[in-house]
Structure formats: structure tokens, C-alpha cells
């Protein structure tokens, strides 16, 4: 298997290509060149969509709240998908909670997050679920964020960027591969005669695999509260903000993995189900994630569902 691993998007990106995966007519393709370009595509999009880079589109939008800001077409596309995610989840998925994250201490890339702080945890208001604070005029390549909010496409951009990498690989005759960023992945085709096999991490011991899935040509995203955590005034905070409370989510779900043809959609579905908690999240997933899902609760219950 041909692999490439590198740091991107505040996590580890991995490309694994199953042999033989190159079409006959592309047999002379230089795989290393294809991988180089794939990595460049990921880095280019990250540069536009990161909340933490001062020259990114997201930073420029956040510097001019309340005004229409011209952005790259890719940014406008991701922003439009984010609005769709907001509407599909009635605001549970909110791409404009950057203000909340910054106030709670998540103002820099996670690998640079400061040591535990004794500053008190601020009390923040709920975010409105009535209308998305992000507006997009995609044909004009402009976006606008309402004052009081800050754009944070982190919940969706990673999946979309991985999808672009996957599209590039397919366009160059590579069909059986995994592109993963921090565990959110497109599993394209198969690994030879078998499906791709993906381990779901145990939230209590992330190095351990809780469950192994056979994945044949689908995407898989996992949202969880057991990573990207930090200490503040003795409290443990995490990055999944519940817009209904303005605080890090406190539900019984600590990890939710969703299978879907589209990785960006899987990310939104997993996040929304985690915020809903198992009681409301499971019936919702049953309706919207027919390819399957896995929930792990804080009580150690593993729940998974498959449509047959």
C-alpha cells in the first residue's frame, strides 16, 4: 500500500492507496507527483479556510463583520454548504461560533493551545437558531457574517477539503484509496478484494480500537468530546459548542461516527447527533444516516445501527 502522512488542518492527514489502483491508461502516472499535488491541494484550501491564519479568507471575513467580503470560490462553496448544514439541523450546526470558541480559550490552533488557565470560564449567551449568521452570495463570491459572530468553518471545511483531495485522485485514475484528516475520511473503492477496514477509536483509550467497520466506497466522520480539550479555571472544556447553551456540549454522547456518501455531510450529521444526545440523536440519525452510524456514550455504551 502506498501511503503519505503529513500534518495539516491542525491534525494528521493520511493518504493510503491500495495496489493496484491505477487505471491501465494511467499506468505511467507518477504516484509521488500525484500525492505531492494532493497534499498541495489540501494545504491551499487550508490556507483559505483556517480560522487561525491571518491571511485566510475566514480571517478577512472575521475582520469585517457585517459587511460583504469577497472570497475565493472555494470559500464561497464551503460557506454555502455550511449554511445548508445550519438549515438542515435547524441551527445545531452553526458555522459562526468562533466568538464562543475564542472566549472559551480556543483562539489559536490546537497544537499551540496555551497551558491551563485560571481565568474564569465566561458565561456566554445561546446562539440564535432562527437564522444563520452567515450569508452567502455564491455567484458573486461574497460572504457576510453578522456582528457578534465569527466564522469558524472547522466543523465542515476539513471534510470538504478531503473530498477535494479525493476528487483529484480519482481524476488521475486512482480509485481505491483512503484520504483521512484527523480520522475523517473518504474511503474510495476497496482495498483489493476486501472493503477498507476502519477502526473506531475508544473514547476512553483513543489508541485502542473499539469496533472495526468494513467500509466500501463511503465516507466516515467522527465527532467527539474526548479530543481538543483544555483546562480553564479547573474545568475541562472542549471545542463542540452547543449553540442552545453557548457552552461546550454536555450530552451523554462522547463520540459519534457517521457513514455517508459525502464526508462533509457526515461531519455535520455526526456533530448534530452528538449535540442532540443519544435520546434525540438516534432517531434523527436513523432518518438521515441510512448507511450506518456508531454512538459511544459516556457510560460506555456502544450503539451502532445498520440499514438492511
Amino acid at each position: 500500500m502506498h501511503t503519505r502522512t503529513f500534518s495539516a488542518m491542525g491534525t494528521t492527514a493520511e493518504i493510503a492507496i491500495a495496489p493496484p489502483s491505477i487505471e491501465v491508461e494511467s499506468i505511467e502516472t507518477d504516484l509521488e507527483t500525484v500525492l505531492d499535488t494532493t497534499e498541495s491541494i489540501i494545504r491551499e484550501h487550508e490556507g483559505r479556510l483556517s480560522r487561525f491564519r491571518s491571511d485566510s479568507d475566514v480571517a478577512r471575513v472575521n475582520a469585517r463583520l457585517g459587511t460583504w467580503v469577497p472570497v475565493h470560490p472555494a470559500t464561497a462553496r464551503v460557506a454555502a454548504l455550511a449554511v445548508e448544514g445550519f438549515e438542515a439541523t435547524a441551527g445545531l450546526f452553526n458555522p459562526c461560533l468562533g466568538t464562543w470558541l475564542e472566549s472559551l480559550g480556543y483562539a489559536v490552533s490546537f497544537d499551540m493551545l496555551p497551558s491551563p488557565s485560571e481565568d474564569p470560564v465566561p458565561t456566554l449567551p445561546p446562539a440564535s437558531g432562527a437564522a444563520c449568521p452567515l450569508e452567502v452570495r455564491e455567484s458573486e463570491r461574497r460572504v457576510r457574517v453578522a456582528p457578534g459572530y465569527k466564522l469558524d468553518l472547522g466543523g465542515l471545511a476539513k471534510g470538504w477539503i478531503v473530498e477535494q483531495a479525493a476528487l483529484y485522485l480519482r481524476s488521475h485514475g486512482v480509485h481505491d484509496f483512503i484520504v483521512s484528516a484527523g480520522g475523517d475520511m473518504v474511503c474510495s473503492g476497496r482495498h483489493g478484494e476486501r472493503p477498507w477496514q476502519v477502526g473506531i477509536a475508544d473514547p476512553q483509550e483513543p489508541a485502542r480500537t473499539l469496533l472495526t467497520l468494513d467500509v466500501d466506497n463511503l465516507s466516515l466522520a467522527t465527532s467527539g468530546t474526548y479530543r481538543r480539550r483544555w483546562q480553564r479555571a479547573g474545568a475541562t472544556l472542549h471545542h463542540l459548542i452547543d449553540p442552545r447553551t453557548g457552552r461546550p456540549a454536555e450530552t451523554d454522547v462522547v463520540s459519534c461516527s457517521v457513514l455517508h456518501p459525502r464526508l462533509a455531510a457526515a461531519e455535520v450529521l455526526a456533530k448534530a447527533a452528538l449535540l442532540l444526545g443519544s435520546t434525540d440523536g438516534m432517531p434523527w440519525l436513523r432518518r438521515h444516516a441510512p448507511d450506518g452510524w456508531v454512538i459511544v456514550t459516556k457510560h460506555g455504551r456502544v450503539i451502532h445501527a445498520w440499514n438492511w
Binding site: M1, E14, A16, I178, S180, G182, G183, D184, M185, C187, H191, P195, W196, Q197, V198, G199, I200, A201, P203, P206, T209, L211, T212, L213, D214, V215, D216, N217, L218, L220, A221, T222, S223, G224, T225, Y226, R227, R228, S255, S257, L259, P261, D291, G292, H304, W306
Partner: peptide, 17 residues
């Protein structure tokens, strides 16, 4: 595509938060 539980413990890659 399709997916299901794998009977084995081997995995090509891990999905995590």
C-alpha cells in the same frame, strides 16, 4: 457504497475525534 461491522480486528486506518 456500503458498510457494516467487520468480523476481524485489523484496521487499515482509525477514525477518531
Amino acid at each position: 457504497g456500503s458498510a457494516g461491522i467487520s468480523p476481524g480486528n485489523h484496521s487499515d486506518v482509525q477514525s477518531h475525534a
